[in-house]
Every structure is written in structure tokens, then in C-alpha cells.
Simulated scan of single mutants.
Amino acid sequence: MRTIEPETDEQVVSSGWTTAIPLVAVGIAILMILLGVIAIAFPFFASVASTLVFGWVFIFAGITQIVYAFQSRGAGKVVGKLILGLLYLLAGILVVVNPLKGVLALTLVLGITIFLQGIIQVSIAFQMRRISPNWGLMLVSGIIGIIFGIFVWSNFPFGAVWLIGTFIGINLLFDGVWMLTLHSGQRRTLQ
């Protein structure tokens, strides 16, 4: 077992790394909080915007996969990669052309994602309980994610238009808050 000497702790606390990294993390946390508030205030626009971003990501992935397919050697590899690229491209185009139908599909995908993110955050929170005194906020964020994921499934498809934007906003808001408080708690622990 390795022990840390007191002078090493002082060097870590007084180094520039402890101030530079938390400043970036604080900036990201504040940005997440602001984006969360905007998404909560305008849930329909947040739903459509997130769907369009999702569609464009698929279009970009499809084009990239098609280009990659033509660079592959061997007919079997090219055909498989080309089919995959065309599927990505088609899915992206369908979502961008009709974002309201895309919202329905994305609602299910995000419901599952938020649910799984919540499970992972709960697991990480229990691991961090010895490291950070503010681990409880991460735990609460994870539990809220699990509840939101279940709520999405139970209200589908009726609440899809406003639900996805609101949940993204609430999730961003809570994630920003726990990130903001987690770093302040770790700094106090180091000091």
C-alpha cells in the first residue's frame, strides 16, 4: 500500500493544475446549467433541435462510412461498409426531412439513454462516496435519470414533442449542478 507524504499533498494543492482543471470544469458546468434552463424554457424547440442534430450526425457518419468503404480492400468489406454507410445516410436524411417523426424515434432512444446514464451515475456515485463529500448530488442526478427514463417510456408517444426537450433540459441542469459542486468538494478535501 502506498502512502502519500504531507509535503506531496501541499505540492498538489498549490500547483497550477488544481486551479486550471477546475476552472474548465466550472465553465462546462455553468454552460450545462444555462443550456438546461434554455431547454426547459423552450422544450419544443429543444426537442426539434436535438432531433436535427441527431439527424445531421447520422448524415455525417453515413458519408464518412461511405468514403471509408471505398478505401477498403476486398469486395465483401466494401459492400458491407457501403450498406452500413447508406443506412446511416438514409436514417439521417429521414430525420432531417421530417424532424417531428424523428422526435418520436429520438424520444425512445433518449429515454433509454437517460435511464442507462442514471444507472451508471448511481454506480459511480457510490464509488465516489469516499472521495467527495458531495457524492450525494451525483446520486440524486442518477436516480432522477432513472425516473425520467421510465417516465419517457410510460408517456410515449403522447408527450414526445415537449417531453424530450424538457428532460434534456432537466438532465443538463442537474448534471451541471453536481459537476459544479463535485469539484468544489474535492478541492476542500485536498486542502
Rank of each mutant, 00 (worst) to 15 (best):
V122I: 12
G74H: 04
L137S: 05
R2L: 07
V67P: 01
I168D: 03
V140F: 12
P22F: 13
G136I: 10
I59S: 04
G149Q: 01
I83V: 15
Y88S: 04
I112P: 03
T107W: 06
S141M: 13
L104I: 07
L190K: 14
A75T: 15
A69M: 02
L82M: 13
S72M: 10
I164R: 00
L116T: 06
L108W: 05
W135E: 10
L106N: 08
G149D: 00
L190R: 14
L90H: 00
V26Y: 15
G74Y: 08
W56C: 02
F126V: 10
S154L: 15
L90P: 11
W153K: 04
F167H: 03
I146C: 00
G176D: 05
V161P: 02
M138F: 07
T3R: 12
L190E: 05
A29T: 10
L173S: 00
G27Y: 01
M179L: 08
Q117R: 01
G76Y: 01
M32P: 03
P22H: 09
T3H: 14
L52G: 09
L87K: 06
I146M: 09
I63L: 10
S132K: 10
I144A: 15
N134M: 11
V78S: 10
S132G: 10
R129I: 12
I66Y: 00
L82D: 03
Q191K: 15
Q191D: 11
L52E: 06
L139T: 11
W17C: 07
M1I: 00
S154H: 09
V26Q: 14
L89H: 05
E10A: 12
T19Y: 06
V78R: 15
A41N: 04
N134R: 09
L35N: 11
Q11N: 00
A25L: 11
F151R: 07
S141I: 09
F126D: 03
R73F: 11
S50D: 05
I66A: 09
T8W: 01
Q117H: 05
I120W: 01
G169E: 01
Q186R: 14
L31T: 02
A41V: 07
T8Q: 02
Q65S: 06
V78H: 12
T181D: 10
W178M: 08
A29C: 08
F44I: 10
E5P: 03
M32H: 13
S50H: 09
G76P: 08
G16K: 09
V95Q: 01
I21L: 13
G62P: 00
I144P: 06
L139D: 08
